[in-house]
């Protein structure tokens, strides 16, 4: 993945599609389940995580020649928790209502394996441009995955999209109330991952034939 022949754009696209952190790598599942009950929450959460992964890759890539191997995890953790705190303060100052709904899941970006794995796999051994392309790819991929779950759960569970009613009057969202409850999150994500697997397995078979 990190060889010189791959272009920066490919690195970006890999993060969004082939290597999608949530749907393919199965990292960052907790927020994908917890804050995907509405599209708004999903987008804000995705934005915060994108900011953190971009800043973490930026700092790691800039300092990659100075970081001693056995303190690297400590440095990654320090960097990530710093930028998570900044993101959290920013949300509480400028998007107060959403930040209350996200609850502990903004600070929990600290332990999101997706972010530390980007620093470890890409940023510490690649230049600035490549690391940033990778971070944006992962960030956008994460946001997209959350949004897909968010759209399904918000439309079925509340009959709205970004808080605007979108379903016909005959549709009764209270019959689908399960979608905004915890089980709905597990079931939706399980089905989506099943579909993604199905498409990937079919593509692989098609490519081999």
């Amino acid at each position: 993945m990190a060889d010189g022949k791959v272009s920066d754009f490919t690195q970006f696209r890999e993060g969004v599609v082939d290597n999608n952190p949530v749907l393919v790598q199965l990292l960052g599942m907790c927020p994908a389940l917890a804050v995907s009950n509405t599209l708004e929450n999903a987008i804000v959460m995705g934005g915060a995580a994108t900011f953190v992964v971009v800043m973490s890759n930026l700092v790691t890539s800039l300092l990659r020649h100075q970081i001693k191997p056995h303190v690297r995890i400590l440095i990654f953790t320090l960097t990530i928790s710093t930028f998570v705190t900044i993101a959290d303060l920013f949300l509480r100052a400028h998007l107060f209502d959403v930040s209350r709904k996200l609850g502990p899941f903004v600070p929990l970006i600290i332990v999101n394996c997706m972010i530390i794995s980007r620093a470890e796999v890409v940023a510490i051994r690649n230049g600035l441009k490549r690391s940033l392309a990778d971070a944006f790819g992962i960030g956008v991929g994460f946001t997209l995955a959350l949004s897909v779950v968010g759209v399904i759960r918000e439309i079925l569970g509340s009959g709205t999209l970004l808080n605007y009613p979108v379903t016909p009057a005959a549709f009764e969202p209270h019959l689908w109330i399960i979608m905004v409850l915890p089980p709905g999150a597990f079931l939706t994500l399980g089905v989506i991952i099943g579909i993604v697997n199905y498409v990937r397995q079919r593509d692989r078979k098609g490519g081999a034939a």
């Binding site: 199965l26 399960i178 409850l181 915890p182 089980p183 709905g184 999150a185 597990f186 079931l187 994500l189 399980g190 089905v191 991952i193 099943g194 579909i195 697997n197 199905y198 397995q201």
Partner: peptide
């Protein structure tokens, strides 16, 4: 085949969550 592994685990977790409700 496409549900093996994490997908079926999530679906089972959904049913467990339903029970815990």
């Amino acid at each position: 085949k496409c549900l093996q592994g994490p997908a079926i685990t999530l679906l089972v977790a959904g049913i467990l969550a339903l029970a815990f409700l």
